[in-house]
Design a protein around this nucleic acid. Sequence first.
DNA 1: ATCTGATTGTGACAATTGTCGCCGCTTTCA
DNA 2: TGAAAGCGGCGACAATTGTCACAATCAGAT
Lengths: 207, 207
Amino acid sequence: MTIEQRNAIYSFEPALIDEIQKLGSERLMDAGEELMRPGMYVRSIPIVLSGSLKIMRQDEKGNETFLYFLTGGDTCAMSLTCCTANRPSSVRAIAEEPTKLIMVPVEMMDLWLQKYPSWKNFVFQSYQNRFDDLMEAVDSLAFKKMDERLWRLLKKKAALQEKRYVYNTHQELADELSTSREVVTRLLKKLEAMGKIKTHRNRIEIL
Amino acid sequence: MTIEQRNAIYSFEPALIDEIQKLGSERLMDAGEELMRPGMYVRSIPIVLSGSLKIMRQDEKGNETFLYFLTGGDTCAMSLTCCTANRPSSVRAIAEEPTKLIMVPVEMMDLWLQKYPSWKNFVFQSYQNRFDDLMEAVDSLAFKKMDERLWRLLKKKAALQEKRYVYNTHQELADELSTSREVVTRLLKKLEAMGKIKTHRNRIEIL
DNA sequence: ATCTGATTGTGACAATTGTCGCCGCTTTCA
DNA sequence: TGAAAGCGGCGACAATTGTCACAATCAGAT
């Protein structure tokens, strides 16, 4: 997928697309590769062209919890704010699958905000979408029990790649839910008994 | 506190201050009064002049959880996005104490973004601050046990008004933490035994 | 083929949190 | 003054989640 195709979604002006292609640099990431970690200073804004990024929050002791996914056309709100304020990231971003990004230098942010209405819309739309995503994460953490959180995570992962299978170990899922491996194993058994999934090694089938 | 005094913080241009005063309308809220509820359409952007707003997330079943406070100079990021996109609010905003707001008509948003650099900075700064606040809320929900969440909430409430006393019932605290009254009572006893607080009727003393 | 490490399964138990019932005290208001 | 409602305290128990120990199974490397 190219930036032109994304254009259809956000109606970037042709001149803006030119600039993005001229000044931005493409980056290909393998699944599991880390784009950003807490404390890191970000000097360019990533726009996802294809694949997906998993955004995680980390506490001081290294515990993690999943926040949301970024997919095609999305950008990281954290980058937008961190870049402009020159502050370090407070989240971790990992490629969930092979992912293609275009990295836009932070210097363009301000200029384009003035110059291109579509860029301004894109930025504001991104903030709004990320707020919604965070609200969903808060709902899950505050109101749902672990079994439902696990089930929702599995469905979201399956939907991402439009596949029936989720390729994760119990430990990986536990890390994303900030719980322990045994708990995930236990709840997966429960979901299996309920007929919602079928477990395999390194792979879970959504029914 | 007037908009001029906040000006020192955000360096609003004099012309912008004039416009805010001319076009905005002041609103006084009693403690506990509701400014916004989920599903409500917002047609003006509130800027807090004095006092504080409590922002809560609600799920479909009416459970609530505290997200963050807005205090002097803050504005609601939800309003910024909801107004521009004409979408209903997804949070509840309640005055935590007697609170003075200035309500700015949403029509000004776009215009001022072009016209006043300080407004643009203000808006972006607000997004960033609210993101930070939400991250703190997520940390609390994902990584902290109830006793520490309660303790942090009490400290935050005390700091808000720079007082030793927090005037809340156990039930109110339970609602903000999305737990039950008994649990709060139990944990308050524990905090009292640890010498961190002293409980009174309708009032908790932070030591 | 065998070893090794990663993955999954399981039982027992502890800690935390949620829920119920009931009590006594205080405040409010009729 | 008396009733009702709100507030806080307490004990018992259930449900959920966290933790530990250990076994069984699978996949890949040598």
